[in-house]
Nucleic acid binder design. Structure first.
Lengths: 233, 233
DNA sequence: AAAACTTTTAAGTATAAACTTATTTTGTCA
DNA sequence: TGACAAAATAAGTTTATACTTAAAAGTTTT
């Protein structure tokens, strides 16, 4: 990969990471300053700087001006979670995607939705309940609230051909997204929708998105039993 | 924040991001080449490059040599998940942390654990079952398997004062970590341990860590009802 | 001893220049 | 027409240099 004798910032990053993994530097320990590492590894300081920035982003190391760089004292498991469009998720697993519009109403947002958007006043919103299916078997049920002030296009849209999920993701990019993951028991209604038994443990993803400070949508996505969220891969 | 007339790479990144958010560039659209953006925004190409690298890491944009930069065609919700040491998590929420060692045995790892580590042969491992409590109420039950080949220190360690979770995180940094999140119903045993009812929906985090290609530990952390995992914050 | 300064330090940044590398496009030849 | 080689392209890279900024450490004043 690296014919040149020069060290790429990724190589530097890995070398420093290895030094930490080997225990040469433990939690809370201070690393040499960038300039010294650069000299020792005979590369430019900016190369070390780029490497350190990456280690800092990964939560491995903490950096402060004048304070120097130290190994994070209280390590965390930091991972990146990718949540694709539901259609794509299903297709990637080899399933055939379909979706059903269950209900579509305009309602005053309940307290739960208000809270998700950090709103103080009640607001009229579009509520869309839909089911995503993989090979005609229920996969995810979504209960979505859409702010028609931010997304007026949604008012007269046909949501049977394209799902709200897909349209929004493709047409309404967001600048902020909050996620909440938890488990919930299936009540009679959910059990029927997801073709399972009352009381089954269901995995729930709640998501709220904004453009600047304007709410776009919040979804509660309830997955059918067996659903798992993986990192990496 | 920015007295100078110069544009920082973060400012450039935000400006490009804004152009995407505003719809000026939609999914799949190609952005101008770095050099042109640099000229237009009158900054150095390397500044644009750094900005683009960040947008690429965030999954907003896709870059290919010679192919240029384009807005990701199939947007994903990409977030960073931080899972701290359980003690710290509890203390940060204002709880008083205690833990109990439930059981400690040496067993041949079951198929589930073998699979998590991508092992083909059965292996003898240390199994540690423990309960983390917040203000004396069950918070997370963990069922942990430790590879004594990789972590021999664990064999004669007192796990009543310091939890395996904490010791491992502080003393055994990992180079790879796989996560798996899902929901599970409480059976009689779990219900008793977590002080809840049989059938309650529980949130589960399964984690496997390696140092290089050597397995360190795999944990199944089962949270008491009400547990939620949040992003950001 | 506490508060208010100054200095020093180490990370953070921007830039131009030169070079590398993956990929696409184009051109040539069979 | 298709296969293959050559050229062009745009991102990726390192480097030296110069400057900025946050924060720690030291100094003086109250």
């Amino acid at each position: 990969m690296n014919n040149t004798s020069r060290l790429s910032w990724k190589a530097v990053r890995d070398e420093i990471h290895d030094a930490i993994l080997s225990g040469r530097y433990g939690p809370g320990d201070r690393l040499p300053r960038d300039a010294d590492i650069a000299q020792e590894m005979s590369c430019a300081r900016s190369t070390v700087q780029r490497a350190m920035q990456d280690l800092s982003d990964s939560g491995i190391v903490e950096r402060r001006r004048k304070g120097g760089t130290r190994v994070r004292a209280e390590p965390v498991t930091r991972t990146t979670l990718d949540i694709p469009i539901t259609r794509r998720e299903i297709e990637q697993k080899g399933g055939r995607y379909t979706h059903q519009l269950i209900r579509r109403t305009e309602q005053t947002a309940p307290r739960r939705v208000q809270a998700a958007f950090e709103l103080t006043e009640p607001r009229l919103m579009l509520r869309v309940e839909a089911l995503h299916l993989s090979d005609a078997r229920p996969y995810i049920f979504e209960d979505r609230w859409i702010d028609l002030g931010t997304v007026p296009e949604m008012r007269d849209m046909d949501l049977t051909t394209q799902s709200a999920n897909e349209w929004l993701v493709l047409n309404k990019p967001y600048s902020r997204c909050d996620l909440r993951l938890y488990a919930q028991s299936a009540d009679a209604q959910l059990a029927e929708l997801l073709d399972t038994t009352v009381g089954a443990a269901l995995f729930v993803i709640e998501r709220a998105t904004w453009i600047d400070s304007a709410p776009i949508t919040t979804v509660k996505s309830i997955a059918a039993p067996g659903y798992q969220l993986l990192t990496g891969t």
